[in-house]
Write a protein that binds this DNA or RNA. Structure first.
Length: 204
DNA sequence: GTACTGATCTGCT
DNA sequence: GCAGATCAGTACC
């Protein structure tokens, strides 16, 4: 049966709620006719002007982060340290967004292994999953969700969502303590995974 | 044209 | 667990 892309209107509401809603959704990319997809296992919310860790802290607009000021449904891709990271822009009037930090590989794992040049830890980090799924700033920055190149499906449902501190922002003072990172509890495809793996990787 | 920044990754200890 | 690698994009001169 034909899979249905999701209704993304929930991205227009509260960013923290939207972040939790995204867990378990399946992201599918089509690059040169090659399909790859994965289930979202880890996300982080970035609350625009209030959030010291966000690129849009204090509402400063630059060429790089301008996409964050677009209405929800757009994708914001940025590069750093030679890697790309992908965000879903949320809300209509605030520069907020959700960083996709990790996914569980589904379709096209051979392609991901090929793109990554290794067969372990394919997608358990922001820079890793974009490479595995073939996402790049040139083609994907500013595009809409659910177009020819990138689609989102319902995917799976997490049994339990765990909120933790964000990662990689140790220099962001008080923002390091915000519990804006959400993971599927018991799923090993998240960054810095520790603990025990759930029977079904934490899915229902 | 040059300098600097960064929401990372990898390998080594 | 930690330090070093690494690179594109942006800002500034």
């Amino acid at each position: 049966m034909e899979k249905q892309t999701i209704d993304i209107s929930f991205l227009g509401g509260n960013t923290l709620d939207a972040a939790q809603n995204l867990l378990g959704k399946e992201i599918e990319t089509v690059i040169d006719g090659i399909i790859t997809s994965g289930f979202i296992t880890e996300v982080e919310a970035y609350l625009g002007t209030l959030d010291r860790a966000s690129h849009t802290y204090k509402g400063k607009i630059t060429k790089k982060n301008a996409m964050m000021f677009e209405p929800y449904g757009h994708i914001y891709v940025y590069t750093m340290h030679g890697h790309s990271c992908m965000n879903f822009v949320t809300t209509t009037d605030k520069p907020e967004g959700i960083l996709i930090r990790a996914v569980e590989p589904n379709v096209g794992q051979e392609t991901m292994i090929d793109r990554r040049g290794r067969n372990k830890n394919l997608t358990d980090g922001p820079g890793k999953l974009t490479k595995a799924l073939g996402i790049n700033r040139n083609d994907h920055n500013g595009m809409d969700i659910n177009n020819e190149l990138l689609k989102v499906y319902e995917g799976k449902t997490p049994i339990e969502i765990e909120a933790t501190k964000r990662i990689g922002i140790d220099n962001k003072e008080e923002a390091v303590d915000y519990l804006y990172r959400f993971i599927v509890k018991g799923n090993p495809h998240v960054s810095r995974f520790k603990g025990k793996i759930d029977k079904n990787n934490g899915w229902k």
